[in-house]
């Protein structure tokens, strides 16, 4: 059934989180692919309210499976994974997609960069070395360029692929994003949150294949509306505060919530805090 987890206080403990929505055709291959490359890593599939057998397939492939009672969106799913990692004290987290477009072979390179450059977050980029090995539709490429420009402008450092969902994170980034990851467009906005939290992020060129099965969650027909919404979300993200004091409070397991909780303190992790006074 579930794989036994290694000692969670081990310094190199690694969790691979894979948010999945109706990916029953691809998820087994993805999980197995990660397992071949990283046999010691734990793999957590977050089934974001799928209507098919995604959860069963993932479990059969040997992943840990957390299921949402209903669809929360990609950001909500990744956040669940990060809360899990936070709570079980994983040192590093990889986040990849459940449709097979991210190559598990790149994970080790990303982790190496994370450690070698003392970065807090490494993002796999499709465009860093201009070697695009599959044709992305023009409208989507324009969108990606637009977000990259916005994020570059807002953070002051250059980003090429802000819509990439292939991340490697260390403990500090896990804690920040577990608390503040937005629900709808986490890929673009997380760059700004990580930047505002004073963490160091880097891009690494990776290959991304075409998705094997399933339908992308981004509908091209609505891309202009989408682009506008993302832009608004990016700007509002940049305007918000991300106080770290709240996080430290939260991460001490024994600390109970005192008084009224800040509305942005978005976590009552399993068994961590009393849900209501």
């Amino acid at each position: 059934m579930t794989t036994p987890r290694p000692d969670p206080v081990c310094a190199d403990s690694l969790l691979v989180i894979i948010p999945a929505l109706n990916e029953q055709g691809a998820i087994r291959q993805v999980v197995k692919g990660v397992h071949v490359v990283l046999p010691t890593a734990d793999i957590l599939v977050i089934d974001d309210g799928s209507s098919d057998d995604t959860a069963q397939e993932a479990q059969a492939a040997g992943a840990l499976v957390v299921r949402h009672p209903f669809n929360l969106g990609i950001g909500g799913a990744v956040q669940t994974g990060l809360k899990f990692a936070c709570h079980h004290h994983y040192e590093y987290v990889i986040r990849m997609d459940g449709d097979g477009q991210h190559d598990a072979c790149s994970i080790q390179a990303m982790l190496a960069v994370l450690q070698a450059h003392q970065a807090d977050m490494v993002i796999g980029s499709r465009f860093l070395d201009a070697d695009v090995d599959w044709h992305i539709p023009l409208s989507r490429r324009l969108g990606i360029r637009l977000y990259a420009l916005e994020v570059t402008w807002l953070t002051g450092s250059r980003f090429t692929d802000t819509t990439s969902g292939f991340w490697a994170m260390n403990r500090r980034t896990i804690q920040v994003l577990a608390a503040y990851l937005p629900q709808d467009y986490p890929d673009v906005e997380s760059r700004i949150i990580v930047h505002k939290a004073g963490l160091k992020q880097m891009e690494l060129p990776v290959h991304m294949g075409e998705r094997t099965t399933g339908v992308s969650s981004i509908n091209l027909a609505r891309s202009i509306y989408y682009a506008f919404k993302v832009t608004v979300a990016v700007i509002t993200t940049a305007l918000k505060d991300y106080p770290l004091a709240v996080l430290e409070n939260h991460n001490a397991d024994t600390v109970r919530a005192k008084g009224r909780r800040h509305p942005l303190q978005s976590h009552s992790l399993a068994g961590d805090l009393p849900t209501d006074p």
């Binding site: 977050i46 840990l64 499976v65 957390v66 299921r67 949402h68 009672p69 209903f70 929360l72 909500g76 956040q79 669940t80 809360k83 899990f84 709570h87 976590h267 009552s268 992790l269 399993a270 068994g271 849900t275």
Partner: peptide, 10 residues
């Protein structure tokens, strides 16, 4: 919803 998922796993 996230807590339910995590608690259910637990």
């Amino acid at each position: 919803a996230q807590s339910i998922g995590l608690l259910e796993w637990r």
